[in-house]
């Protein structure tokens, strides 16, 4: 069986919102949805399937995703689902839905207002509730454990960290900058992102150069940090293999990381050499809106293909402490001169 061709045909993201903007999640999301839908030539509610990613804990309210639905135009009622995960996994669910043949187009969105709470406290709640959460170890501390493990293993050096804008700040006792310690987490911003997926000929009609999803896969690892090799990311490697990332070289990689050390782990797991442009979007994934940051990596990679700046790009999203869960997608644009006008249904 030939798998159905599915592409990212539109991507939109908000600017970084300041808490003082005073927007509700629906208000933050609405212009982003319209931007993505306009690019694809879809009206609100017109996509065959809608899927979103967000977190109640981030919002401080149960069922927080229901409020965002006000911006979608869910009338007449729509086929819709939601993952309590980064929007990258909402994209995965939508991709599967299109593969089944039940949908030809899908709207995927994600939103987060980390400014509502203190992320350093909130994210401790996603740790083992018996052994870890009672200690309130904040995410920056956990990331720094990973950095130390990499330094010890000689896989990164302190000089590299010094040039990293995302590196920890010097400690009060004058400890050398770049040595891993728990910094005050850099504040993630509020925002939203949206992507439109479409299959086959529909994708070609909606977008002059669709970013075809050649493969997408995600894998999880043990939650226990003391059990894992923090210098490696076997789940990323496996997801990349299953997504076909190693079948041919990529020219671009958009990586969802907390800091330079995690980028080093991923570069190794994904076998990215100096020829690959990493995070050309200028993105600073660590400050992207939580729950949308992974979807933004996928969207930025796709947008680069749309613009003709990449022919084959890898996009990565992560979730959980120290890269516990990872998603890898491989996106491709067709070579210049491709007729792009196959008969309707030929590839679907």
């Amino acid at each position: 069986m030939t798998p159905r061709d599915v592409a990212v045909v539109a991507f939109a993201r908000s600017g970084h919102h300041e808490p003082a903007d005073g927007l509700s999640e629906a208000e933050m999301l609405l212009p982003v949805l319209h931007d993505a839908l306009d690019q694809a030539g879809l009206a609100p509610g017109e996509a065959d399937f809608t899927c979103s990613g967000s977190s109640d804990y981030l919002a401080g309210r149960p069922f927080s995703f229901t409020l965002a639905l006000d911006g979608v135009g869910a009338w007449p009622p729509i086929a819709e689902s939601h993952v309590e995960m980064d929007g990258a996994w909402a994209l995965y669910e939508a991709w599967v839905k299109i593969l089944t043949g039940q949908a030809g187009t899908a709207l995927v969105y994600a939103h987060g207002k980390p400014s509502s709470g203190d992320l350093r406290d909130v994210l401790t709640r996603q740790l083992d509730p018996y052994y870890l959460a009672p200690l309130w170890p904040d995410p920056a501390c956990l990331a720094a454990l990973q950095t130390r493990a990499l330094l010890d293993a000689g896989l990164i050096d302190e000089a590299a960290l010094l040039t990293d804008e995302a590196a920890p700040v010097p400690s009060a006792d004058g400890h050398p900058s770049g040595t891993p310690h728990a910094p005050g987490a850099r504040a993630a911003t509020d925002g939203a992102a949206a992507v439109v997926l479409a299959a086959g000929a529909t994708a070609r009609r909606m977008c002059t150069r669709p970013a075809w999803i050649r493969g997408i896969d995600h894998r999880i690892e043990s939650h226990a940090l003391g059990l894992r090799d923090l210098t490696d990311s076997p789940s990323t490697r496996l997801a990349a293999e299953r997504a076909g990332a190693f079948d041919a070289p990529v020219d671009t990689a958009e990586l969802h990381t907390a800091d330079a050390a995690q980028e080093a782990v991923l570069r190794r797991a994904l076998r990215l050499d100096g020829t690959v442009t990493v995070n050309p979007s200028g993105g600073t994934p660590a400050t992207d809106p939580v729950m949308a940051a992974g979807l933004i990596r996928l969207g930025e990679a796709a947008a680069r293909i749309h613009r003709g700046a990449s022919d084959r790009a890898l996009a990565h999203a992560t979730s959980g402490p120290c890269l516990q869960q990872n998603l890898v997608a491989v996106l491709e644009g067709e070579p210049a001169g491709h007729p792009g006008a196959e008969p309707e249904g030929a590839r679907t």
Binding site: V83, R219, S222, S235
Partner: peptide, 28 residues
């Protein structure tokens, strides 16, 4: 997630569900 007070508990439950090395999706 407020019912149990664990944010995205599937991360913690991955081990008990034999999910290491597998895909896990969480729907809400």
């Amino acid at each position: 997630d407020f019912f149990e007070g664990v944010m995205m508990p599937e991360l913690y439950l991955a081990d008990a569900l034999g999910a290491a090395g597998k895909p896990v999706l969480r729907v809400h």
